[in-house]
Amino acid sequence: MFNYTLRRLLFAIPTLLVISFIIFALLDLAPNDPTGELPLTIPPEVREQIRASLGLDQPFFIRYLLWMQQFFINEPLNLLEKMTGWQIGDGSRMRILSWATRSPVVDLIVERLPQTLWVVGLSYLLAVIISIPIGVISAYKQYSIFDQIGTFVSMVGFSVPTFFTGVVLIVIFSSWLQWFPSVYDTNHQVTDFASLMFQIKQMALPVIVLTLYNTSQIARFVRASMLDNLNQDYVRTARAKGVKENIILLVHVLRNSLIPVVTVIALGVPTIFSGAIITEQIFRVNGLGQLLITAIQGADIPLVQTLTFIFAVLIVLFNLIADVLYGILDPRIRYD
């Protein structure tokens, strides 16, 4: 298993390089433009000069190599300097600058991480915690009332999009009942109990929206996979042997059912980093999702490229983790 992991990690490097190139080419090919959102009163020749000042007049490969140099050399060096306080070189390295804000992309991402982790990360965590018991009980008591209600709620939860549930929750809880704010305050600092309560209040609505959506999805996979395993011969054997029902369920069946669940969660965790675009927009959480979508709409290539590439790294990493977990969950799975 160790050899396998090492081999995969080494193979990940060329994979990621190829991915970074394809993303860059795709962004370059896309027909939107960084001057697209400017007022039409700005004349074409000035737009041309703006493009030139962004480096867009350079050939494609030069721009790609420049990004590579900035991402793989300059930014890590800068991080090292910040963490250790050393001075490496003359400190005049070009960092990756966003075209819209003209500030270092990495700083933007660091600034956005807290709210995204609070809202999107927490809701994903909640979804995993809630959905596994729901899935297990639904499968164990298939077609019971609990299962039927669970199926109904999760299907509705998945098929009603977040742009709708978000608005409904705002109208009910912010407008009528005035319980929760509809705008997320990113400047809020948690220092004492009162400010913690405020933080919980302002997170409540977006977290509910996202948790509902994610729970629905994961619970369905847990249920389906549990159902498969409950009918297996080994369950009957174990029952015949008089093994306690709880142990059969939670140790044997659940463990064997976790493979698709691990897959789904491993696919889901990187998406925490890419944020929840629609929900973040509706509640103005302004996390990574909002950063990404404004960058895409504004054709801010350095920002989109960096965000997407970090996202790609996480995907490759978590899919690797999933593959390793398969082997632990089911020792019969061998990769070598």
């Binding site: 090919l29 027909p31 054709a299």
Partner: peptide, 13 residues
């Protein structure tokens, strides 16, 4: 999409 329509990218139709 507005960013394409007003973007003025000569490659876009």
């Amino acid at each position: 999409a507005a960013s394409v329509f007003f973007g003025g990218d000569p490659a876009s139709p």
